[in-house]
């Protein structure tokens, strides 16, 4: 995992070069559309990371073993997923101000993403509010299974309802040029590897914190407290 960071930095720089310099300006939106590459990268990462959170929640609820270790990843994926959702909303709002003339509209894609943000913010608050570890693990996993309902809805929202949000992946292929697709791909890999790195780091930190907690209790016990 340590070597992953040596890949992420050059990939980031390459993605920035491709998105900001290499691809040409868009015909009607000009230079402002370039935020699309960041937006697409963080949005795809958000949906993927939250899907991983769902799979981990499934494992916690339906499998008996290794719940503590899995739970570290459940917390880490929810946090990184929320971070990526925040970045998606922020980059989208900046673009919307230029393209649509307003930071926010109640478009289905935007609305479902805002709900997604609140659901996972609630997930993290729920974790925070349960003291007993076993209870926290199972309760947040059950909540994680329920909140995931919104993730496919966010993805399909532009296809189900009439939305003004642009669609990239459609049944008849992709709505972007091959050159744009390369830049999208670079940004996507930069963001998803960055997410993986953050998740690994956060999960390890959780594990270390628990180990420290156990050692402290043992030491206090040895001293007779």
């Amino acid at each position: 995992m340590r070597y992953l960071r040596w890949v992420i930095l050059p990939l980031w720089l390459a993605a920035l070069y491709l998105a900001l310099i290499w691809v040409p300006d868009e015909r009607s939106l000009g230079v402002s559309y370039r935020i699309f590459y960041i937006h697409m990268g963080v949005a795809m990462s958000a949906l993927i990371v939250l899907t991983v959170n769902f799979v981990i929640s499934l494992l916690i609820v339906f499998m008996r073993g290794r719940r503590e270790q899995l739970d570290h990843y459940a917390q880490a994926t929810a946090e990184v997923g929320l971070l990526m959702t925040t970045a998606t909303l922020a980059s989208g709002m900046l673009w919307a101000k230029v393209a649509w003339g307003a930071y926010w509209t109640w478009d289905p894609r935007l609305t479902t993403t805002a709900i997604l943000w609140f659901l996972y913010a609630g997930y993290l608050l729920l974790r925070e509010a349960i003291d007993q570890p076993q209870k926290r693990i199972v309760y947040s996993a059950v909540y994680g299974l329920i909140v995931f309902i919104d993730v496919p809805i966010v993805y399909e929202s532009v296809r189900w309802w009439s939305s003004i949000h642009p669609v990239v992946f459609t049944e008849s292929g992709m709505n972007i040029t091959p050159q744009m697709f390369i830049a999208v791909l670079f940004f996507f890999f930069a963001m998803i590897l960055f997410s993986i790195d953050l998740i690994a780091l956060r999960a390890k930190q959780q594990a270390l914190r628990e180990k420290l907690e156990r050692l402290r209790e043992k030491r206090l016990g040895d001293l007779g407290y």
Binding site: I115, F118, G122, A129, D131, Y139, Y143, I146
Partner: peptide, 27 residues
């Protein structure tokens, strides 16, 4: 009922419920 079952076991009890329940009820 579903969110109340979760919230009842937390330290914050009913304080947490609006955050858990109301986003779900938006549709």
């Amino acid at each position: 009922t579903a969110m109340g079952a979760l919230a009842a076991q937390t330290r914050l009890r009913e304080l947490l419920l609006p955050v858990l329940l109301l986003p779900f009820t938006s549709p």
